[in-house]
């Protein structure tokens, strides 16, 4: 029994690994908030920093910098930590000569956390304040900083722990896509060879793909609520994927509304090819032609460069494989039920 069904077990085991590794791996430390957001050049400022998974108190040899766009830094004079998650860093801001305004990035480094970065933490404006301090911009010496070597998922502001949704929300769309491709291949096969079994396979894979698509929309909606602040927004990617799902709903309805088995198979196979041809521009082309909140759109392809760190890939690719195997398993069940139904109709 195991000889034939090993891949079902494999799919479940891989998904189990995804659940464990995806939920138990901690996030890298990060800064959730740093106040004040503005300061005047030539004055002293105390930046109150709230950390996430940080060790402001336990970490050794802690330093903090404000970095400008020219890779120059000013170092904090002193810091006062009130616990591992909160600390106050004091900076003397030098006078600005050339610019009216500068957005500075906050970098905190210690032995336990490595470098924690908050981009554009504070906006410094040119002002009247002028303290005769020795504060000047220095070149940023990256070599002297501590590096965090642990296997951790990246910390992203506003994403926080929801970055783990990548393994479920994104992976289920990938799995759906693979199932739809299998369905498409068997629809074409049916039209070429007129073997009803091929039509049943296509129908089964497409039906499970639709279920995965519904999960994809629902999970995306939850993720949107906790990052964008709304369940649904007028974003191209969201609306177009909903339209794509409706087109596939119509496939299921079409299959059930035609009684004759042969014409049902012919019609739905042809429709499946068209719906897949519409799916590609709806999900992959249109969202990239305009701006979109959704990652992987507006010109920049997903999974390239910064969008997916290596630590996420270690869990994300298994998640796609595991969910696809589970989807194939579900599809084989639907296929067998379809065949049984046909046999029963023929027996009458």
């Amino acid at each position: 029994m195991l000889r034939q069904n090993w891949w079902k077990l494999l799919g479940v085991l891989i998904f189990g690994y995804v659940l464990v590794a995806g939920l138990l791996t901690p996030l890298k430390p990060g800064i959730t908030d740093a106040t004040p957001y503005t300061a005047v050049a030539g004055s002293s400022v105390d930046i109150n920093v709230q950390g996430y998974n940080t060790h402001f108190e336990d970490g050794q040899s802690q330093v903090a910098f404000l970095k400008n766009r020219q890779q120059q830094v000013i170092q904090a004079n002193s810091f006062r930590s009130t616990g591992n998650q909160s600390s106050v860093f004091s900076f003397d801001l030098p006078d600005m000569v050339d610019k009216d305004k500068a957005r500075l990035t906050l970098v905190v480094n210690n032995s336990l956390d490595g470098s924690i970065i908050l981009p554009d933490a504070i906006t410094v404006t040119k002002g009247t304040g002028s303290i005769s301090n020795s504060a000047t911009w220095m070149p940023f010496d990256v070599g002297s900083l501590h590096v965090l070597e642990d296997f951790r998922f990246p910390y992203r502001n506003t994403l926080n722990e929801t970055i783990r949704n990548t393994f479920f929300h994104v992976a289920i769309w990938f799995a759906m896509f693979i199932l739809f491709i299998v369905g498409l291949i068997y629809s074409i096969k049916y039209l070429l060879k007129r073997n009803l079994r091929h039509d049943h396979i296509a129908a089964a894979f497409t039906e499970v793909g639709i279920i995965f698509g519904i999960v994809g929309l629902a999970t995306g909606s939850i993720w949107a609520k906790y990052t964008w602040g709304t369940w649904w927004t007028d974003d191209v990617k969201l609306n177009m994927s909903a339209v794509a799902m409706l087109i596939y709903f119509a496939y299921s309805i079409l299959r059930l509304s035609v009684k004759d088995i042969d014409s049902k198979a012919r019609l739905s196979s042809a429709y499946n090819i068209f719906s897949f041809a519409v799916l590609i521009p709806l999900i992959f082309v249109l969202p990239r032609m305009t701006d979109s909140l959704h990652p992987g759109n507006g010109g920049n392809p997903a999974l390239g460069g910064e969008d997916l760190e290596n630590s996420l890939r270690v869990v994300f690719y298994p998640a796609v494989i595991g969910l696809t195997l589970i989807g194939v398993w579900m599809s084989t069940l639907v296929y067998r039920i379809g065949i049984l139904k046909d046999q029963w109709i023929n027996d009458l």
């Binding site: 996430y52 949704n165 479920f168 499970v208 999970t219 906790y226």
Partner: peptide
């Protein structure tokens, strides 16, 4: 809590939908 419960919600949806689908297959059989 660092929005960890949104991850729990996502996994729950995945699980609940698959279970509901299994029930519908069960009924068909």
């Amino acid at each position: 809590t660092g929005k960890i419960y949104s991850v729990v919600g996502v996994i729950l949806i995945l699980f609940v939908v698959i279970v509901i689908y299994l029930f519908s297959l069960d009924r068909k059989v």
